[in-house]
């Protein structure tokens, strides 16, 4: 295997895990609430700005800012749920209404971030020594490796929560059979608010990781992350949080490896071709199941 190919795979894995977190947050919200969160990318960017503010104003390092960011985003979103989502149930088509509502939230958030932070691209000025680590032919920025480790810890925490705790199992249960959770005495509204908080809390934390891995962020790039989120959940299976991770890694590795051999535009197309091919072969995504829908 050539050094370049190995480099592409490593980069793809790092990107993939971070993309997977974007998809997992989007997937939890969609799976539990049937809400298409078009503003997910804006919440990712807001997370980056929040970390930037904590670093600039309070000197809190980005990795230390993650738990705080998650707590703030979770808490605010938990409350925001009760303002935004329950009224949708009265609509003739709640899913379409939710899509339009969150599209509006997306535009509003983009405009607000532009107003508050200006249009200039910003970056988290955070460096680690040594700047690069070398593994044979592969050179990886240290901060990317630490970001990968942080992302994997978040994935492990998320998996533990979803598969080992009562609330996590209830969240998975509501994705499988929303009507049935009422029968066992679960407060659906409260659980839905937790899902909304969790999804957006993940978006906030992922925003910090993207700001560490990519050179800069601005109020205009939220839609790009939303698109990536949709691609990976379609690949992995709608409503399946772990499927999103698998889909993301496949998408990112394809994109990064293709970028070695083709120009960047073609590489991006390769990622989307993978998605289209998956839809043709397996319309429910890699881990999605028709029965769950």
């Amino acid at each position: 295997m050539s050094g370049l190919l190995l480099q592409g795979i490593i980069n793809g894995l790092i990107m993939g895990v971070i993309y997977g977190l974007i998809g997992a947050g989007l997937n939890i919200v969609f799976g539990v609430l049937r809400v298409v969160n078009f503003a997910h990318g804006e919440f990712v960017i807001l997370g980056a700005y929040f970390a930037w503010f904590l670093l600039q104003a309070l000197g809190i390092q980005p990795f230390l800012a993650m738990p705080l960011t998650f707590a703030v985003f979770f808490g605010v979103s938990y409350l925001l749920y009760f303002v935004l989502i329950p009224p949708l149930a009265k609509a003739d088509d709640p899913e379409i209404s939710s899509l339009l509502l969150m599209f509006g939230v997306s535009i509003s958030m983009g405009a607000l971030m532009l107003l508050v932070f200006d249009a200039d691209a910003r970056s988290l000025s955070f460096e680690m020594e040594p700047v690069f680590l070398t593994f044979g032919p592969v050179v990886v920025p240290t901060v990317r490796l630490v970001a990968l480790a942080a992302a994997l810890m978040i994935v492990a925490g998320l998996a533990y929560f979803l598969y080992r705790t009562h609330t996590g199992k209830a969240l998975r249960a509501i994705i499988m059979n929303r009507d049935a959770v009422r029968i066992v005495g679960i407060k659906v509204e409260q659980l839905s608010a937790i899902a909304f908080g969790l999804g957006i809390g993940l978006a906030g934390v992922t925003g910090i990781l993207t700001a560490l891995v990519f050179p800069s962020f601005s109020p205009f790039v939220g839609a790009d992350y939303t698109l990536i989120g949709f691609v990976v959940i379609v690949l992995g299976g709608l409503g399946h949080p772990i499927g999103a991770m698998l889909g993301a890694i496949l998408f990112a590795v394809t994109e990064q490896v293709a970028s070695i051999y083709f120009n960047p535009s073609i590489a991006t197309i390769c990622g989307f071709v993978l998605m289209v091919a998956t839809i043709f072969v397996r319309p429910t995504g890699l881990l999605g199941r028709q029965a769950l829908r």
């Binding site: 199992k169 209830a170 059979n177 029968i183 005495g185 199941r289």
Partner: peptide, 24 residues
């Protein structure tokens, strides 16, 4: 309440379905 249509969580194990039945 045991409804007419299946009210189980298909991908969860028997044990997990019962655990969720103890939610209250």
């Amino acid at each position: 309440f045991v409804p007419q249509h299946r009210s189980l969580f298909a991908d969860l194990s028997v044990e997990d379905n019962l655990v969720l039945g103890c939610w209250v």
